[in-house]
Design a protein around this nucleic acid. Structure first.
Length: 406
RNA sequence: GGAGAGAUGCCCGAGUGGCUAAAGGGGGCAGACUGUAAAUCUGUUGGCUAGCGCCUACGGUGGUUCAAAUCCACCUCUCUCCA
């Protein structure tokens, strides 16, 4: 392998935007060695197999992976299937069900199709940590655990807080950082990437590599992206995310709903704007926030679906919410419902069309004026509809369904 | 192993026999206002029901009682201190 960029140039590219880099000198030394020998660095990124939906938050670190990849290094996308199979004892109520082999395989495929939007799959190595974790026996595990102390584990913020607040910490949780660190040993990783919240785990990897006689990996942490609510980090379980598999319309719409304050950060972490462009955007964000937000939504939609789709998504948005629009989305999903001879009451229809989770919820929506039929507010919860009728049903601001009774 | 504290709805948290589908807050949802932003105000937030009402619910099981989230017994789990 021949590198086109010099170690210094590579260092420059690869360290922009990182929060923590441990250690800069080590990284440069690794880059130099790799440049001289023609041997690419092994760059590791771990992924949780139980949540195979990749959202914009994940892309921050994936983009960093792509930079390494573009420079000619070997990126390893590591799926923590073993961890997933063990399950998570922390959430007592919702014990994470151990994933079956089929599920792991299916999730891996899902991952591939998604990370392919950012990484070059041809050049991406995909690994499963069960390959080396499953064969370990108790002696191996004792050796692994003897490398670490409880006091050092309690250095992790999360553990320290829970310990202080008398919230349970399972022994197994102490093993997770060790397992993750052992992954680095097994892969002989040169660099491991992760969000800043992963700092502790990444550091454990360094320590373990040293214990096992390997040169320690360089760790690089990247900023955590806030979710659509602008408060918590973007995550599927909080529902404040934009999945990269979503339609351009969904991506556009969701991005338009973020708080103004985080627009700058989104531009910074999710687009490839240059520094001067970023400054320009941040300046305009105060004077014309709407236009800037549209630009953001457009740009990101285009990144994943192309310019044409982004243009269309923007037009659809205007049609729906703009001053001159008619308040209807471009595409409305259709529900064919079979009605009994006596007809269907509105409440039932809302539930059957998937616009309300229960009858009570549907009733509430109607009572509060959140339900429209063909754009007309519909206050009568008992209104009956007969076979052959069809109309556009709207629940709340965003729930639309074309209902056809048959 | 010993002593003590605790487990309540999506989350936090009040509630020590009936007026408790359970205060209050957070979050969610809807409405008004708007830029599908923020802030603010209003309503709402277990299920079934047009409604009366019925069912399910306060870690689990059983018991006392006309009546239990509340009292008793056992069990499970968590935390603290001692060893």
């Amino acid at each position: 392998m021949k590198f086109t960029a010099t170690p210094q140039e590579q260092l420059q590219i690869v360290t922009t935007g990182v929060v923590d880099l441990i250690d800069r000198a080590e990284l440069l030394a690794k880059l130099e060695k790799s440049f001289a020998s023609g041997k690419p660095l092994v760059v590791k990124l771990g992924a949780d197999p139980s949540a195979p939906d990749i959202h914009l938050g994940h892309t921050v670190v994936l983009q960093k992976m792509r930079q390494f990849q573009a420079l000619g290094h070997e990126v390893v996308f590591l799926i923590g299937d073993f961890t997933g199979r063990v399950g998570d004892p922390t959430g007592r109520k919702k014990t994470r069900p151990a994933l079956t082999e089929e599920e792991v395989f299916a999730n891996a495929e899902t991952y591939k199709s998604q990370i392919g939007k950012i990484l070059d799959l041809q050049k991406t190595r995909i690994e499963f940590n069960s390959r080396w974790l499953a064969p370990l026996n108790f002696v191996d595990i004792l050796k692994l655990t003897s490398q670490y102390t409880v006091a050092r584990m309690l250095e992790r913020d999360d553990f320290a807080n829970r310990y202080k607040n008398q919230i349970p910490i399972s022994i197994v949780e102490f093993l997770y950082p060790l397992m993750q660190g052992y992954d680095s040993v097994a892969l002989k990783a040169d660099v491991e990437l992760g969000g800043v919240d992963q700092t502790f785990n990444l550091l454990v990897g360094r320590d373990l590599q040293r214990s096992y006689g390997q040169p320690p990996q360089v760790i690089m942490t990247l900023p955590i992206l806030e979710g659509l609510d602008g408060k918590d980090k973007m995550s599927k379980s909080l529902g404040n995310y934009v999945g990269i598999n979503e339609t351009p319309e969904q991506i556009f719409g969701k991005l338009m709903s973020i708080p103004d304050e985080i627009m700058g950060k989104y531009f910074e972490l999710l687009t490839d704007l240059s520094i001067p462009e970023l400054q320009e955007v941040k300046r305009r964000a105060c004077s014309e926030p709407k236009a800037v937000k549209v630009q953001l939504a457009h740009r990101i939609a285009a990144q994943y679906h192309g310019e044409a789709a982004a243009v269309q998504a923007e037009a659809g948005f205007e049609k729906m919410f703009g001053k001159s629009g008619d308040g209807l989305p471009e595409q409305i999903e259709e529900s064919k419902l079979s009605a009994p001879p006596e007809g269907l009451p509105l409440i039932r229809i809302l539930v059957m069309a998937g616009l309300a989770p229960s009858g009570g919820e549907a009733r509430r929506l109607i009572q509060q004026g959140g339900v429209r039929i063909d754009q007309q507010k519909q206050p009568d919860q008992n209104r009956m509809f007969q076979r052959g009728e069809s109309f556009v049903l709207q629940a709340g601001k965003r729930g639309f369904r074309k209902v056809v009774l048959e």
